[in-house]
Amino acid sequence: MMLNKSIELFFSYAHEDEELRDELAKHLAILKRQKVISTWYDRDISAGDESKQEIEKRLNSADVILLLISADFLASDFCWGIELKRAMERHEAGEARVIPIIVREVDWKGSPFGKLQALPKNAEPVTNWANRDQAFADIARGIRRAVKDLRALPSNPNQNSSFYIERPPIETNCYQTITQPGALLRIKAPQKMGKTFLLEKVLDYGRKQDYQTVKLDLRLAEKNILADYQSFLKSICVEVAESLGLEAQLENYWRELYGLNKNCTRYWQKYLLPSLNKPLVFALDNFERLFAYEELFDNFCSLLRGWYELAKAETKVGLLWQQLRLVVVHSTEVYPKLDTNYSPFNVGVAMELPEFTQQQVAQAATHYPLEGKLSEAGLQELMELVGGHP
């Protein structure tokens, strides 16, 4: 994981916007002090450095490229023809994350970055905000979320894929599912079949679509939390809020008079979902951890099914819930019986991972010392011994 790696940010901007760039840099100072990010812009060029070469070097090494969009930026041949062009090439190749930041009013629709999610909220230009500190704080939170996603990726981009053998068309079907508003994707397989690897690929695909992603691994849930449903729901709400760079603010939305599922739904509907400016892929890994807690499992499944049904309505509330894309990952263990009308396990899209074919086993063997040593007969013997289980 890239947990200890400082993410390198590159500022692409017109010099007419330098004061706005400096203000943004102040709001990112806490991330620099925490050694979460390092930043670079052309004023950092040392005396004697070749200006253009140094800019291109930094542009090619940056993890995140911030485009400070204004009329001057769009009019600059260097910003448009060199920095923007290279930034989008690296973004499309998955080598860097490009984040447009609208600093001054300008018509930027239809530009190469027009399909990307811009900051601040609703792409409202910074100079249009009554309080610019609020605009820059919103931008800083968006950058923090992007950086958190990047730091969660493997330090070697091929680390996961090296040991993941694709089972077409499962991967493509999963990717297509999470692009659907209000989707519910269920990934099911026995233990050690590659469910979590597939989930990481799905989340990575979501990030490349500029979606926000939050993954909760239920194996990490403590028993005292699982023993109390209210604590369980509140812990999920707080963890999701923090993952999105938001203050928890549970006390503003949780009402003692309401039931727990209603309170949780209310918190998401009135606070979390309206705070999003892009789809959210919310993944629950190792869902089977809940099977042993029958009452909690029954109530939580009813909650998830309710969220899925809310997204079906073509109303203001329904459109809010359509931003949420649920992914539930679980083993093939028998789960407690559920009312079919309140179960998330009979709706949405189900993907069950099959065992490897002999060809896929041979492909997997290339990642181990077996490569070149496993004859056709040996491969057949291995298949008979372990089947197609990875």
Rank of each mutant, 00 (worst) to 15 (best):
residue 334 V to K: 13
residue 291 F to M: 11
residue 19 E to C: 05
residue 377 A to K: 11
residue 109 K to I: 08
residue 147 V to K: 07
residue 272 L to V: 15
residue 327 V to F: 00
residue 102 I to S: 06
residue 352 E to Q: 04
residue 115 K to V: 03
residue 360 Q to V: 06
residue 134 Q to F: 04
residue 301 C to G: 07
residue 296 L to Q: 03
residue 230 Q to H: 04
residue 69 I to T: 06
residue 79 C to I: 00
residue 79 C to D: 06
residue 358 Q to L: 13
residue 18 E to P: 06
residue 58 R to H: 14
residue 55 I to H: 00
residue 205 Y to C: 01
residue 178 I to N: 14
residue 199 L to Y: 02
residue 155 S to W: 12
residue 116 L to Y: 04
residue 178 I to M: 12
residue 107 D to Q: 03
residue 339 D to Y: 09
residue 11 F to R: 02
residue 384 E to L: 03
residue 64 V to Q: 03
residue 297 F to D: 06
residue 116 L to F: 03
residue 145 R to Y: 11
residue 227 A to M: 12
residue 126 V to W: 01
residue 245 G to Y: 05
residue 299 N to R: 07
residue 178 I to E: 10
residue 55 I to S: 07
residue 206 G to W: 03
residue 224 N to L: 15
residue 20 L to H: 08
residue 43 R to G: 06
residue 27 H to D: 07
residue 84 L to Q: 04
residue 272 L to G: 11
residue 261 N to W: 09
residue 353 L to W: 05
residue 381 E to F: 06
residue 56 E to N: 13
residue 117 Q to H: 14
residue 166 E to L: 11
residue 29 A to F: 11
residue 201 K to E: 11
residue 322 Q to A: 01
residue 219 R to P: 01
residue 379 L to P: 02
residue 43 R to H: 10
residue 300 F to H: 01
residue 67 L to V: 06
residue 170 I to M: 07
residue 343 S to N: 11
residue 69 I to H: 03
residue 355 E to L: 00
residue 356 F to M: 07
residue 253 Y to W: 15
residue 162 S to Y: 13
residue 340 T to G: 07
residue 75 A to Q: 12
residue 52 K to C: 11
residue 57 K to F: 08
residue 140 A to G: 07
residue 67 L to E: 08
residue 320 L to E: 01
residue 22 D to M: 10
residue 343 S to A: 01
residue 246 L to H: 07
residue 353 L to G: 06
residue 376 E to P: 05
residue 331 S to F: 06
residue 304 L to W: 02
residue 298 D to E: 12
residue 324 L to Y: 02
residue 173 N to K: 13
residue 160 N to I: 15
residue 260 L to T: 14
residue 231 S to T: 15
residue 34 Q to I: 03
residue 321 W to M: 04
residue 164 Y to W: 14
residue 46 S to F: 05
residue 295 E to Y: 00
residue 361 V to S: 05
residue 267 Y to A: 15
residue 222 E to Q: 14
residue 107 D to L: 03
residue 286 N to L: 09
residue 202 V to C: 05
residue 217 D to W: 00
residue 95 E to G: 03
residue 106 V to Q: 02
residue 206 G to K: 01
residue 169 P to N: 11
residue 170 I to R: 00
residue 33 R to F: 13
residue 33 R to C: 12
residue 290 L to Y: 05
residue 188 K to P: 13
residue 158 N to P: 03
residue 121 K to I: 07
residue 140 A to P: 02
residue 195 K to M: 10
residue 354 P to A: 02
residue 201 K to V: 04
residue 70 S to V: 11
residue 183 A to K: 05
residue 284 L to M: 14
residue 117 Q to K: 14
residue 304 L to H: 08
residue 181 P to M: 13
residue 371 E to K: 09
residue 233 L to V: 11
residue 260 L to W: 09
residue 16 E to F: 13
residue 341 N to F: 12
residue 193 M to T: 05
residue 31 L to E: 04
residue 185 L to T: 10
residue 243 S to E: 13
residue 172 T to G: 14
residue 156 N to H: 13
residue 220 L to A: 12
